[in-house]
Design a protein around this nucleic acid. Sequence first.
DNA 1: CGGTAATCTAGAACAAGTTTCAGAACTGAT
DNA 2: ATCAGTTCTGAAACTTGTTCTAGATTACCG
Lengths: 213, 213
Amino acid sequence: MGNMTTESKAARPTLPASPPLTERQEARRRRILHTSAKLASRGGFDAVQMREVAESSGVALGTLYRYFPSKVHLLVATMQDQLQHMHETLRKRPPSEQDPGARVAQTLMRAFRALQREPHLADAMVRALTFADRSVSPEVDTVSRLTTAIILDAMGLDGPATPEQLSAVRVIEHTWHSALITWLSGRASIAQVKIDIETVCRLIEVTSGERES
Amino acid sequence: MGNMTTESKAARPTLPASPPLTERQEARRRRILHTSAKLASRGGFDAVQMREVAESSGVALGTLYRYFPSKVHLLVATMQDQLQHMHETLRKRPPSEQDPGARVAQTLMRAFRALQREPHLADAMVRALTFADRSVSPEVDTVSRLTTAIILDAMGLDGPATPEQLSAVRVIEHTWHSALITWLSGRASIAQVKIDIETVCRLIEVTSGERES
DNA sequence: CGGTAATCTAGAACAAGTTTCAGAACTGAT
DNA sequence: ATCAGTTCTGAAACTTGTTCTAGATTACCG
């Protein structure tokens, strides 16, 4: 157990800082992430088995663990990767709605439909994200920042967001993650997720158009 | 893997239906849940090791698995147990605020302070809850209903809740779980959780006092 | 080119969740 | 009290995430 508090020797290729990766290393990393997403698409969290990821990526198990210190790290990095794609895709087709709240709801529903096309992959990524403990905080934080960026983009604000709006965005993120989980575990329908998202997105209107206090 | 779709032979003591448990069986179940909570209080999710739970509860490993088909089932059942206590405790001291939203926020913050006293236990339960897959859906659903009941109780409504209010309650639950996770994994402060809860609780005021549309 | 340190490989080994099985203990009905 | 069926025990086996080690490869520096 206590093994994540005293690490400072190994290079951490997941952090794009530190030593800049070689070309071959970058290629390895890509291959691993690709394999991870492929296996996850097949059977979700359980289908991503470290031995298989390593073998299918053409690296040794030890190397896989050098790049991603745990299965959760790997899947969160995979999510980071996918989210980046998603962000670009969404950026190209900005929402058509007028109100910021409606724009966010529309954007999130678009993202949700994309996830529906790969429910197993979504399962693996979201489960990893919420199961992550403190040792994965930096990576999870990056994912969180990406999500925030997507939402703020969708709002299409002129100036910077107000503190109230930022709070609303945080709550929207909470709802988004948790609603995804209930959907993935079969306890909520797609329609229910839609309602939840639309409900929480009202917070934006409220915090924007508030009169006083 | 695929082992939860075709089960109809074994009794499932976690479901209070089926064959009504013997006294000794009920006692075993209690001992197991107690051990689970004790170990979880010590070191969180990882500290609850099935072999140790079995040994410390004075049952064989196979028996433990007959009562709770997986570690996640065990911890979700533990959460069920704890939530029931919490519900009774909260019921005794109803919130002092006037507005339904403020009452809910106050109640949730009370619950949150209770969880802060046993952060490891909270960690184990919440992680299990969000990591649970479809095979645990019924149990997770029970936990969800308990949480909903707590929130509705806190609102102190006269009549039945409106559909809008029920939606708001769902979103509050989402936020509650997700905010807990970010706090447990050290990515959000206690103050931040408080803000998030207060923010989402505005939805109740909004959905109650809404003028039209 | 030669040397040195870091990285990668292959494979064993370990840890904890889960399954399995033979036999002992218990339960309920006759 | 006895028999049949279920439940419980004890222990081994299996699975998959994670760690460790010795040797091969590679990258970098003079």
